[in-house]
Design a protein around this nucleic acid. Structure first.
Lengths: 197, 197
DNA sequence: AACAACATGTAAAAAGTTACATGATTCA
DNA sequence: TGAATCATGTAACTTTTTACATGTTGTT
């Protein structure tokens, strides 16, 4: 259940409405921890019930309301406690490597198609993560959340903030590249085994 | 929902009871797709209801029964159809890289502890996967499922069976190694940033 | 007689997915 | 006046986790 900590990470920078948070989320942390809007709104309500965040309701028109959330002291402490606690690692559940292990049951063409789609899949992730990396490194204009984060922190912390984000996304970029390289070797393997027959 | 295909992969080799299947599962496919016994038994019942497998009940003592499962034609077709269909990739949800991206909020010691635990975690996975690889390569005695699989197939298919399994686990071994290398660079980064202050 | 291994589950909760529902405001 | 974007969800379902429940057979 890391979703609430991903949300806290964004809210700690400054108050946001559920809507703004959901938008910023998909453009930043969402690349590391995916969540659809339909999961974010209920989680915010739960976090409010748990006292981690508070909302200020603002009227919009006659019936509409907008809820601006901010982190409470308890929320701040919860985030910091999470940062120090042992992470709960997900159990391994890897559909691609599962299928790869039984690829002898498929035709060479189906095997090739599988690897091609694997490459496509990870090219997509790579593009996302590499895009983030370029924003972090100021090659591309930074995303609004990072900009806000840096403006809200003293200059001497900027190096650390940027360094850890760079390091995290660098790891993901490597992972994507290594998945692509693996699948490319997979295509070679299919050719080799196919030629054998 | 790859669990049923992981189970079908094992059952296609030959009939097994739920218990035997669960045991073999944790020692083979379970390294790629984890599932506890309490998920396997109900899934077998669902697969039976869906006509993918059939059970023959055997009496054990006066009240006990053992259910020997075997794959039906429909189950075989479902497995082969899955092998050819596009895989549904899980959305990214990576607690370690999520935390890494916000490590500036933790103390250098907490950051080091995080990376040390990350190394420990992936050393564990590496040992599992490398162990499987050694069995596949006949360096260690092969696991009973692979032995059965090879005995049930004509000799000319052995190369393909072994090649794909080797290839799948090789990919996982690489992944584990690259996670470990990443965390080790993380420890260096903490030292560098800590020295700065 | 005790213990490991055999054998099969249930129950409750948490987490995640998919599809849908509803209305307000702003700007071209 | 129509479309985009702002704004907040609910409902139903599937998957996964965690903890528990119960009895049998073979071996030392």
């Amino acid at each position: 259940m890391s979703l609430r900590y991903a949300l806290l990470a964004l809210l700690r920078v400054g108050p946001l409405s559920g809507y703004e948070l959901a938008k910023q989320f998909t453009q930043s942390v969402g690349h590391v921890w995916h969540a659809p809007d339909s999961q974010i709104y209920p989680e915010l309500r739960k976090m409010e019930a748990d006292g981690l965040i508070e909302a200020e309701e603002q009227a919009r028109g006659e019936r509409g309301t907008r809820r601006m959330y901010h982190v409470t002291d308890a929320g701040d402490r919860a985030f910091l406690a999470w940062m120090t606690s042992p992470l709960d690692y997900q159990r391994v559940r890897d559909p691609a490597h599962l299928r790869a292990a039984y690829l002898e049951s498929a035709s060479p063409d189906a095997a090739r198609e599988f690897f091609r789609r694997h490459i496509e899949q990870w090219e997509g992730e790579l593009a996302q993560w590499d895009g983030e990396l370029r924003k972090i490194d100021h090659i591309d204009p930074p995303n609004p959340m990072l900009e806000r984060r840096l403006k809200a922190s003293p200059a001497e912390e900027h190096e650390r903030i940027v360094a850890y984000k760079h390091f995290a996304y660098e790891g993901l970029v490597e992972r994507a590249k290594s998945e692509i390289a693996w699948a490319q070797r997979g295509l070679d393997l299919v050719d080799k085994l196919d030629g054998d027959v």
